[in-house]
Design a binder for these strands. Structure first.
Length: 602
RNA sequence: GGCCUCGUAGUUCAAUGGAUAGAAUAGAAGUUUCCUAAACUUUAGAUACAGGUUCGAUUCCUGUCGAGGCUACCA
């Protein structure tokens, strides 16, 4: 990037700024001038909307645009024409500008990527599983988002630290422990052949089922409502007792806890690996909640928080439009908020990075509002830089996933199903003749995962999304495999070019005439660096996904209309080869930012 | 009840306040002696409703209706 020529919009904005000054004595900061790529149905490369200036110019929109256009064309040699439609001023650049841009891009193996360290460091937390049940579709969205956002931030010049915070303690963990102690008969993953996280999850389900029975009995006997019945049920009381024993470091309890959590971690590891995510550091709530408690108690001493008669500790946020919020229970045990306070501090101590991004579902918006205000009250340096990357729920055609109703989509099963579908479809199309068994399996996995990841990441993170299994395994249209296929086709051209000894770098730049389609493709490639910056600013992999789809579509149209290797004009052929090289690279880089691999053949 | 999101083709998704609201899929009709047809081309179809702000509103404001989330000594 360093030795790239300046982005043309920058020059254009400066020229426009100068025109406004010279023509209308308008002082406008060139940075604030809004340019947009010209829409495809009009002629031109970049468009300036002149309406904001017509009042000052005291001219009609058309006249204003024409004057600016003439001034800019005289002063900027890359501009070779413009047209005006209503208040829209469309600039065109010379072919030689576009071609020389292409040549530079094609030579840059990191085209579009800014070296890490140019912008501030970021800690990004995602995944954050509970150790009482296996990962499901909701976690998949979380993990894919977190991992992708981290890579996008890196590509935009940030250094990132990916961290996971495992919720390995608390009442929910005690539930599965209690069920295993009561009804497990010493079952282990080895004995039963179950994956560790699945086994523990089964006991969590068992607990809930038994609790429901007890609660039902209580309701009938004492006319309790649902909450009362659940709370008063003997099982619930036992679970709370177990939590107190755990916090008191009771040897036997801690032993069971360790054993069961290790089963879960082993299970999670294989799920993470298949999903393709990883972390620089894993924090455990069991290691951070005590620090959190300390900080809460310190805050209590400084009168930032207050204590109720029953001994529970609270923060009063009513003067900031929020509520009173519990930080420590009356029995001294910690809540979710407590450990989040501790984790943030520990992380800051470890990395000294105040910018923290939390990838957590939008049902916790309120929690993070409170957390931020608590940090502020405590005067923490990271209070103002906390960012909650709040993503929407994943819904199924049948409605919301409910673990108690068994409608959750298991992460492992889903990934396996994607692999199987990829295999069936690929074999049916006869695409893998001549592949070795290993190559086949790798390809099926690449396609299956590509379909799944793209399907989830193409949706704006903020929005709720519908996961329709039938559509997620579709490989046509706006899908991961469509883009992968486009890449494979290009790689095929590049292989053949080498065989036929056609070399991209032998292009004579003066002999190229751009067709509309070629120029459209080139302009799309040109946008890539900006797309990365925008996606990073918005923390939205969806922007990368939509762009990449656009690019692939653009290439397929070009591919359909023009031949690269069978083109008799050598320079046209070499030019198109350059286009192909850069397109393949951008697709690969962009898909990489989504955590998706692209095959060379499929 | 209070607070916060969100309502775009049949369906799933796009659209920094800008031009004729884009795609995909499902539907209809086509393209392969030519670098991979998981492709390409043509066709039909949408801003929940009512006001307001302005040169211009899917986007901002108000209200109505509809969907979801939060409002736990759960996480």
């Amino acid at each position: 990037m360093e030795n790239m020529m300046p982005r043309i919009e920058v020059l254009l904005k400066e020229a426009i700024g100068k025109a406004l000054k010279d023509l209308f004595e308008l002082d406008v900061n060139p940075q604030t001038i809004a340019l947009q790529p010209t829409r495809k149905d009009y002629e031109g490369d970049f468009t300036l909307v002149v309406f904001p200036f017509v009042k000052q110019a005291r001219k009609s929109p058309e006249e204003t645009a024409r004057l600016i256009g003439e001034h800019v064309q005289e002063n900027l040699s890359e501009v070779n024409g413009f047209n005006v439609i209503k208040g829209f001023l469309n600039f065109s650049f010379t072919d030689s500008y576009w071609v020389s841009f292409l040549l530079q891009g094609a030579k840059d193996p990191d085209y579009g990527v800014t070296p890490a360290g140019k912008k501030e460091d970021v800690v990004i937390e995602f995944s954050s599983p509970n150790t009482n049940k296996p990962l499901h579709l909701g976690h998949i969205r979380n993990n894919l988002l977190g991992y992708s956002v981290a890579m996008i931030l890196e590509a935009a010049g940030h250094k990132t630290v990916k961290v996971n915070l495992v919720n390995d303690r608390g009442i929910h963990i005690c539930k599965s422990m209690l069920a295993w102690i009561k009804w497990g008969n010493g079952e282990t993953p080895e004995k039963s052949g179950k994956k560790g996280d699945k086994l523990v999850g089964d006991y969590y389900v068992k607990f809930e089922a038994e609790l429901k029975k007890e609660a039902q009995a209580l309701k009938e006997a004492h006319n309790y409502d649902d909450d009362m019945a659940r709370n008063d049920a003997p099982l619930m009381q036992e679970a709370r007792t177990l939590l107190r024993k755990w916090e008191a470091r009771d040897t036997q309890t801690v032993e069971v806890w360790k054993v069961m959590n290790n089963w879960v971690y082993k299970g999670f590891d294989s799920t993470y690996q298949r999903m393709g995510v990883n972390f620089e550091k894993i924090y455990y709530e069991s290691d951070t909640y005590l620090l959190g408690r300390e900080i809460v108690l310190e805050g209590l001493e400084k009168d930032v928080f207050y204590k109720k008669e029953d001994g529970s500790v609270w923060v009063d946020l009513s003067d900031e439009g929020l509520d009173h919020k519990l930080l420590l229970r009356a029995d001294g045990t910690s809540v979710y908020m407590t450990q989040d306070i501790g984790t943030a501090q520990l992380r800051y101590d470890d990395y000294n990075i105040p910018r923290m991004v939390y990838v957590v579902g939008n049902e916790q918006n309120y929690h993070f509002e409170v957390l931020k205000k608590v940090f502020k009250k405590l005067g923490k340096p990271y209070a103002d830089q906390l960012f909650h990357l709040s993503y929407g729920m994943v819904e199924l055609p049948a409605g919301k996933m409910k673990s108690r109703e068994g409608t959750v989509v298991d992460a492992d099963e889903l990934m396996e199903a994607m692999h199987v579908t990829a295999k069936e479809t690929t074999e049916k199309l006869g695409k893998v003749d001549g592949f070795s068994e290993d190559e086949k399996e790798t390809l099926f996995e690449t396609i299956g995962m590509g379909a799944l990841k793209y399907f989830i990441l193409k949706v704006d993170p903020k929005k709720n999304m519908l996961f329709n299994p039938e559509e997620s395994i579709d490989f046509n249209g706006n899908t991961g495999p469509f883009i992968q296929y486009t890449h494979a086709r290009i790689r095929s051209i590049l292989r053949k070019a080498e065989e036929r000894k056609i070399y991209a770098d032998e292009l004579d730049i003066t002999k190229v005439n751009l067709s509309k389609k070629e120029k459209d493709l080139l302009k799309t490639l040109y946008q890539f660096p900006e797309i990365i910056d925008q996606a990073a600013a918005a923390m939205s992999p969806a922007q990368i996904a939509n762009y990449t789809y656009e690019l692939a579509k653009e290439f397929n149209q070009f591919y359909h209309d023009y031949s690269v290797l069978n083109e008799p004009d050598k320079d046209a052929s070499r030019f198109r080869l350059n286009l192909s090289v850069l397109t393949a690279r951008v697709i690969k880089t962009a898909m990489g930012l989504l955590g998706i691999n692209v095959p060379d053949r499929m």
